[in-house]
Simulated scan of single mutants.
Amino acid sequence: MNFRQLDLNLLRVLAAIHRTGSVTAAGKALALSQPATSNALARLRDYFQDDLFVRSPGGLQPTRLCERLAPEVQTQLQMLETAVTVRDDFDPARSDMRWRLSLSDLGEMMFLPPLAAALRQQAPQARLTNISVAADDVPAALESREIDFAIGILQPHHRGVRAELLFREHYVAMTSPRWRPASGKAGRTLSARQLAESSLVVAAPTATFHGSVEQMLVRMKLGDRVVIRARHFGALPELALNTDLLTIVPQMYAANVGQRMDMRVWELPRAAAPSYDVRLVWHASTAKDPAHQWIRAQVHRLFGRAQGAA
């Protein structure tokens, strides 16, 4: 017997006849005609070189080979049906789903706490793991299922990768509450001159580096004003709070940290302030999965401030 030559649809007929004890009843259960079911049985007999079923006063009786095969076939068919059936009964309160996402260090500080709080409240048995993936490698990580989704400054142009714009962000300046510009009035917005007179500390995380801040510094000829370049945003508040340095950070981060640490937030010159889009990205293979739809809905509910896909 060569398994590759076996039509696996015939196994459904085998299981149905064994379950019903009748070719006619099995055909009705499978929505097959009686001749089609009889033909399938004939092909099964030819493949296994066994009668499989013999007639008796009580109906068709399985042979010893069939009695060994049919229950195992039925079990495997049920497992396969369970595996391929798309379920629409995802219950976050009962699910032990394990999601894997990718966030930068800044993204982890901004997005992970609210998302974790939502999970603990609505899906207490679920698990969430942040996996470090460089921005350029996110599409490949999604395709390989290394991660399920990512949030960040991402512009994927890869087949099979989908994206949704969550919000548009811009950079601001943040300083100690005692800090004042070297010249001019201390209003809400720093002038180009005031910025040029400041000593700066900026972050340039390797894996998720966003070049717009560096581009702004080059454009405004402020590169020589950078005193410290840190690898992570987490160090910037303390550096600014305890020195005379001015740091440039996303507005969302500044609003969060500013309240907790009593930092002062300044708008940058409008023509110079960098801005960027924050997107949620995922792979098309999970687009209709109820568990993945649910977690993406939570992300959009918590952080979405824009409509439509990007």
Results as ranks from 00 to 15, higher is better:
2 N>D: 15
8 L>A: 13
12 R>C: 08
15 A>T: 13
16 A>I: 07
17 I>C: 08
23 V>T: 12
28 K>Q: 15
29 A>D: 15
32 L>G: 08
36 A>S: 13
43 R>C: 08
49 Q>T: 09
56 S>W: 07
57 P>E: 07
58 G>F: 05
58 G>T: 11
58 G>Q: 11
60 L>N: 02
63 T>I: 04
66 C>W: 00
70 A>M: 07
70 A>Y: 01
73 V>G: 02
74 Q>R: 12
76 Q>Y: 05
85 T>C: 03
90 F>Y: 15
92 P>Q: 04
97 M>P: 00
99 W>L: 06
112 L>E: 05
113 P>D: 13
113 P>T: 06
114 P>M: 09
115 L>W: 02
116 A>Q: 10
118 A>W: 03
119 L>V: 06
125 Q>E: 14
128 L>Y: 05
130 N>M: 06
130 N>K: 04
132 S>T: 09
135 A>S: 13
136 D>N: 12
137 D>V: 05
139 P>Y: 09
140 A>R: 12
144 S>H: 14
150 A>I: 01
151 I>Y: 00
160 G>W: 04
164 E>L: 07
172 V>W: 00
174 M>A: 10
181 P>H: 08
181 P>C: 10
182 A>K: 11
185 K>M: 10
190 L>V: 06
191 S>Q: 07
198 S>W: 01
201 V>A: 15
202 V>L: 06
213 V>A: 02
221 K>D: 10
221 K>W: 10
221 K>V: 07
228 I>R: 00
229 R>H: 13
233 F>W: 06
237 P>A: 11
238 E>R: 08
240 A>F: 04
243 T>Q: 01
244 D>S: 15
244 D>Q: 14
255 A>R: 15
256 N>Y: 14
269 P>Q: 07
273 A>H: 12
274 P>T: 11
277 D>Y: 03
281 V>L: 01
281 V>H: 00
285 S>N: 11
285 S>D: 14
290 P>K: 02
291 A>N: 02
297 A>Y: 05
307 Q>S: 09
